[in-house]
Amino acid sequence: MLNIGCHLSASKGYEAMGKKALEIDANTFQFFTRNPRGGKAKKIDPEDVEALLKIMQENGISVIIAHAPYTLNACSANEKTREFAFQVMTDDLKRMEYLPGNLYNFHPGSHVKQGVEVGIKYIVDMLNAILKPDQNTRVLLETMAGKGTEIGRSFEELKEILDGVTLSDKMGVCLDTCHVYDAGYDIVNDLDGVLDEFDRIIGLDNLYAVHLNDSKNPFSSHKDRHEKIGQGSIGKEAIARIINHPKLCHLPFVLETPNELSGYASEIKMLKEAYKGD
């Protein structure tokens, strides 16, 4: 079965997200834990959460992904920004305990001319201060396109973060197709080679999710602009090879393409038709 979904708004509650997923024939989805451009989060309603968990159990939704706000920058040169990142992630992981066994994804951040090593140290220090042995959520580092001073533009940078985290069993990676293509990993012409490189450096057993996006920009552009599936430089055929690849097909795939709900429904239908598995 293809585990495919999209990014859904949590503004109307958790149960509403579950119902929206069913409307578009999705069996996974992603949501922001709070305002993606701010820091406020709605108070958790346990009944609302239970309603979502019931929908998931009854409809075969095995895993969902929470996404940290874009404003979270764990390796900023600004101490207050780093403190904000610490507070947000700490709170998010507490909130995720209401949804045990799921995933929490975040952008490693931008080191803002401090240097990659300094930035990685800040990220590692934050994760080591936040992660708990008894938490039920796996935290994912997202592969990045490498614009500006972003960390996570290479598998080596992600590996260095993972190696520094004490509770490594609480960590993993989310591969974004637009980001890795824009970063210079040729998933169109050499998908096997890219996966072999990922496996050699990070290990495919550490890959837990895929953001499925086409790219508005050409290969190795370091731009990070998502496009609808089949309308960008990656293309529908390459995306179809990704969802059908034996090393990837078991993972949850989440669309972050520039779409409204009806557009996501169309893409989900298209990709399910392109899927060659059961």
Rank of each mutant, 00 (worst) to 15 (best):
8 L>I: 06
8 L>V: 04
10 A>Y: 01
16 A>I: 04
16 A>W: 03
18 G>L: 10
20 K>G: 00
20 K>V: 01
21 A>G: 11
22 L>I: 07
24 I>L: 07
26 A>V: 03
26 A>F: 00
31 F>M: 05
35 N>G: 04
39 G>M: 04
40 K>I: 00
41 A>N: 02
43 K>I: 01
50 E>D: 15
64 I>A: 13
65 I>E: 05
66 A>D: 03
72 L>E: 07
73 N>Q: 06
76 S>G: 14
84 F>Q: 01
84 F>D: 01
85 A>N: 04
86 F>S: 03
88 V>I: 14
93 L>C: 05
95 R>L: 05
96 M>E: 01
98 Y>G: 03
99 L>I: 05
103 L>G: 03
105 N>M: 02
105 N>Q: 04
107 H>N: 12
113 K>D: 15
117 E>H: 08
121 K>N: 15
122 Y>H: 15
125 D>S: 15
125 D>F: 11
125 D>P: 15
129 A>K: 09
129 A>Q: 13
131 L>Q: 10
131 L>V: 12
132 K>Q: 15
133 P>M: 12
135 Q>I: 10
140 L>P: 07
142 E>C: 14
143 T>W: 02
147 K>Q: 14
152 G>H: 08
158 L>I: 12
159 K>F: 06
170 K>T: 03
173 V>W: 05
174 C>E: 04
174 C>Q: 08
179 H>T: 06
183 A>R: 07
184 G>D: 12
185 Y>E: 13
188 V>N: 01
189 N>G: 07
189 N>E: 13
190 D>W: 05
191 L>K: 08
194 V>E: 06
196 D>R: 14
200 R>V: 11
201 I>A: 14
203 G>I: 02
204 L>F: 07
216 K>L: 14
217 N>M: 15
219 F>Q: 13
228 K>D: 09
230 G>A: 07
231 Q>N: 09
232 G>R: 03
232 G>H: 11
236 K>N: 14
237 E>P: 10
241 R>A: 09
255 L>D: 11
255 L>F: 07
255 L>T: 07
257 T>I: 03
260 E>Q: 11
260 E>F: 13
263 G>W: 05
264 Y>S: 14
268 I>R: 01
269 K>C: 05
270 M>S: 11
270 M>H: 02
275 Y>W: 01
276 K>Y: 00
